[in-house]
């Protein structure tokens, strides 16, 4: 088992993390390349100030707590804090990041880390329950929408149990292996699922730029479908 853990902490970690980086990098490159080549000088016309102001309101989205969404939105937002902070700044994780990147991140205390972990677990369960019980959420949800919540839940749950042997009914090394493998599954899934909003968030929010339509495109589309004499 130790060898498996070593493998999961070593080459498999590096490999899956690389997949995530390359995958996300690919998405960013495609977006940047398409926008630069597609929009060109029209990028200057975009309402950049409005775009940036709008994006900024989502950093602390208090004013977006509109009736009918308050609890779901608050949980969604707070959930992201735990999901970002614990994997990056827990002391044990910092060692792992340091080993591969050489970056020495500051550590949060265990107390805070444990609280955030429990909060994240609770948040996932709340979000899952909402998705299951709310008619309008259920009507929109695909299996992946439920599945991804589970995929996010497992590394947090297994991580917490690994750190708290008194609550853990399973052998420590089995739990640690689950923790590592589930986190690595998450790495692999991120670029190929809606979790890619880690980077695509910034490209989704620029619709003001997408309204900078392609001059001449309409005439070409009409011509290719109906010939040069295309009429309204």
């Amino acid at each position: 088992m130790e060898q498996w853990i070593e493998f999961a902490q070593g080459p498999l970690f590096a490999f899956t993390f690389l997949i995530m980086l390359v995958g996300l990098g690919r998405l960013v490159l495609i977006q940047v390349y398409s926008l630069l080549t597609g929009k060109g000088r029209r990028l200057q016309n975009a309402p950049w100030r409005k775009i940036l102001t709008d994006a900024a309101t989502w950093v602390v989205p208090v004013r977006h707590l509109i009736p009918g969404t308050k609890l779901f939105s608050a949980v969604s937002y707070l959930f992201h804090i735990g999901v970002l902070v614990v994997p990056l700044f827990l002391a044990d994780h910092i060692a792992l990041w340091g080993r591969y990147t050489g970056i020495d991140l500051p550590s949060i205390g265990y107390g805070l880390a444990h609280f955030l972990t429990l909060f994240t677990i609770a948040s996932v369960l709340v979000l899952f329950t909402f998705r299951l019980l709310s008619r309008r959420l259920r009507s929109m949800s695909r299996p992946a929408d439920y599945g991804l919540l589970i995929v996010v839940l497992v590394p947090f749950l297994s991580g917490y149990l690994s750190m708290h042997p008194s609550y853990n009914p399973f052998p420590w090394d089995a739990m640690m292996l689950i923790h590592l493998l589930s986190a690595e599954l998450l790495f692999v899934l991120i670029p190929f699922t809606k979790l890619a909003h880690i980077v695509l968030f910034f490209f989704d929010r620029i619709s003001g730029l997408h309204w900078q339509l392609q001059p001449g495109a309409g005439d070409k589309v009409a011509e290719v479908l109906y010939g040069k004499e295309a009429r309204v």
Binding site: G38, K194, Q214
Partner: peptide, 28 residues
């Protein structure tokens, strides 16, 4: 034809991948 001559692809690629289906839009 629209995808060939217009530049909707990056927008659609991005939305296809990251739409969260959180349904906040419903109550708006």
């Amino acid at each position: 034809a629209i995808l060939t001559y217009s530049d909707y692809r990056p927008l659609l690629d991005s939305y296809c991948t990251s739409s969260a289906k959180c349904n906040r839009c419903a109550v708006a």
